[in-house]
Design a protein around this nucleic acid. Structure first.
Lengths: 211, 211
DNA sequence: ACCTCCAAACGAACACTGTTCGCTAACATA
DNA sequence: TATGTTAGCGAACAGTGTTCGTTTGGAGGT
């Protein structure tokens, strides 16, 4: 067949189609052959635009991480900075839940991830936090976001009552959870985030008074 | 060859060997063929003891979750209950970091997981929390633990300075993180956990006064 | 205009994966 | 003693990521 007059593929088109597959059929549902079929192309052609399947997934990851908002630090208020960062971070992950296991694993060497980390750390230090504390806050917040995106707590329970009755006395209502899954997950995340920020606030005043 | 005089395999032996492989070579490093080789056996034989590779992984997961300690609720003190639960939960996951992606994904239908959830929820309610709050606390705590186990924040950075210098002004010290990776991860987890518990404590007194 | 080099498609193959099938031989039970 | 179940084995199947050599279009240089 040879080289076509106008290119059939592009990195953007591939990443977009791949993300569609992952969104609808999970991470395991994405195979290079299936992606090729969707794009109307043969498998080997994909490797002209991507070195690896891994690289393709990183490409998608960058796309997702670009949605994370770190502008909340601009006015020097660290609390709203962390809050908007955490919320937009979680929202970006929840938009593509099947990608979360990949996003959360492995080193954060991705471009966009590092850029976000840089902005957060810089924002916290500029607001008056010692570097060490800024690091810890960044880490803790990331834990919370990743955990919340990874594990939809409420969806982890079965609709069927029989699973719980008799065997787990305190989980009698657990099957109802799935109906309000999103609601509960949202509330649990907000609860953790706000109480965390409250805790930090107290610590922050101590830091300021120590000077 | 036929049936051997004494069984060569057992579920326990398989799970144990499989976990060894996962611990040393990652989740992807575990293949049924390799597991069979390690056990001095042919692949097909494994399927006499396990229906699936998935079932094998669930077996391992149960083994790990059994390490989680929920006895802290026994004396009615919810705060130490949650704290010991969270810490032992995290410790169990950190002991086998490569298993975390599997443990964290998918519904928590596993026996041992449900038993733990039951104990936690029961403990919180017994201590005076309304069921709804108990659910949220369970969820939030799980988020934190899963996130902390999933993402070793500090290990996510590169040892090489050149990665950061010039490009990310606020991450100039980031390469030093890896040296104290464990220390930082521990502190970040404790920071999040304690400030979360503090936040809950304030909320709890409000709940009591409302009665 | 010609020649060269690179880019982007293809088809075929390789090594690997999880899983199933039919076969055999030992044990457990009636 | 006969029967059925259990736990090994070998071979095969469909599917995976990836690489190789080949073909051909287009861009750049002389």
């Amino acid at each position: 067949m040879g080289r076509p007059k106008t290119p059939l593929l592009s990195l953007a088109r591939m990443a977009s189609a791949a993300l569609d597959i992952v969104d609808s059929d999970g991470l395991d549902g994405l195979s290079m052959r299936r992606l090729a079929t969707v794009l109307g192309v043969q498998v080997a052609s994909l490797y002209n635009h991507v070195k690896n399947k891994d690289q393709l997934l990183h490409e998608i990851s960058n796309q997702i991480m670009a949605q994370v908002d770190v502008t909340g630090f601009h006015d020097g208020d660290w609390r709203t900075g962390v809050a908007t960062w955490a919320r937009s971070y979680r929202a970006a992950l929840r938009a593509h839940p099947n990608m979360v296991p990949f996003l959360a694993t492995g080193p954060a060497r991705r471009e966009t991830s590092l850029a976000r980390a840089d902005a957060v750390h810089g924002g916290l230090v500029a607001a008056g936090w010692p570097p060490r504390q800024a690091t810890l806050i960044g880490a803790s917040t990331k834990y919370l976001v990743i955990g919340a995106a990874m594990t939809s707590f409420a969806r982890g329970f079965d609709d069927d009552v029989q699973v719980y009755v008799d065997r787990y006395p305190h989980l009698g209502q657990a099957h109802k959870l799935r109906a309000h899954a999103d609601e509960i997950d949202d509330e649990a995340f907000e609860l953790a985030l706000l109480s965390f920020l409250d805790g930090l606030e107290r610590q922050f005043t101590e830091v300021r008074e120590a000077r």
